[in-house]
């Protein structure tokens, strides 16, 4: 089974710099694989290990996504090949553009049976791209998938978790599934896998390579700002533990919250 796992590579939200005027900068942020996407990669690798096949990792974005550390990170987690579609116009791409490019790349690969996504990207978290790609490919697409099993050749049985129910669903392949972040625990790469990673193929495609001439934006980004924060007192209570606790309780009584 040929499995593609789509990963979002983006600035780490932990590294966000917030200015006193509420401005937000990612200039010094490290680019990483989205945390929600690693369980999708692990799911794909486990399926390939169990039933045979190969996992191709796929990511699209601006030139920043093609970094040796990130390539190694992805390829040491069990993907056999990495495909990156790189173009500056993908820097602030919204879900329609991202889904269009991913779809074109998957079609170019050919013979793909399953495409996996995380529950959302770590930076934008629209939770839309996976569903859109499935629909654009003309395949079935599902979100919130918590368990994936191969039942028979060409059929999966999955569990899907909604707010108030669990569904057991038969999915004909090819299909695109967005998995929950608790579907499985992503592996830590072994030293052997890390060494092997540098020998695995990495392909960088341009938009033209996947047959896209230009990418018109579907959304205009007007502003990015830090959300308004409540001002806090930030009083650190010193002294022994008993003293600090005594002070705390007296403050809380004054605040009227005890």
């Amino acid at each position: 089974m040929k499995i593609v796992v789509c990963l979002k590579i983006a600035p780490d939200p932990e590294d966000l710099e917030i200015g006193s005027d509420g401005s937000v900068s990612t200039t010094h942020a490290e680019w990483t694989i989205g945390g929600f996407d690693l369980p999708a990669l692990e799911t794909g690798v486990r399926l390939a290990e169990m039933h045979g096949g190969k996992v191709i990792a796929l990511s699209v974005g601006p030139p920043d996504i093609n970094q040796s550390k990130i390539r190694k990170d992805i390829l040491s987690r069990g993907a056999e090949e990495l495909v990156l579609v790189v173009d500056e116009s993908l820097r602030d791409a919204s879900t329609a553009e991202t889904a269009r490019v991913l779809t074109a790349a998957i079609q170019k690969m050919g013979d793909v049976q399953l495409v996996l996504f995380g529950e959302g990207s770590a930076d934008l978290y629209f939770q839309q791209t996976g569903v859109q790609v499935g629909e654009r490919l003309g395949w079935v697409s599902l979100n919130a998938v918590r368990d994936v099993r191969l039942k028979a050749e060409g059929t999966l049985q999955v569990q899907r978790v909604l707010e108030q129910e669990i569904q057991v669903i038969e999915v004909p392949l090819p299909a695109a599934l967005s998995v929950t972040s608790d579907i499985c625990e992503p592996r830590l790469a072994s030293m052997r896998e890390i060494l092997r990673a540098s020998k695995k193929p990495v392909l960088e495609w341009s938009l033209a390579d996947v047959g896209i001439e230009s990418l018109a934006p579907s959304v205009e980004i007007l502003a990015v700002k830090a959300p308004p924060r409540t001002a806090r007192k930030a009083i650190l209570l010193d002294g022994s533990v008993e003293e600090a606790v005594r002070l705390l309780v007296s403050h809380l009584k004054k605040e009227g919250v005890l």
Partner: peptide, 17 residues
């Protein structure tokens, strides 16, 4: 408005289609 960066920022957007 939609939250981005795990709640670290808010993005104001205008759909063009």
């Amino acid at each position: 408005r939609h939250m981005i960066f795990a709640g670290g920022a808010e993005r104001l957007e205008r759909p063009l289609r």
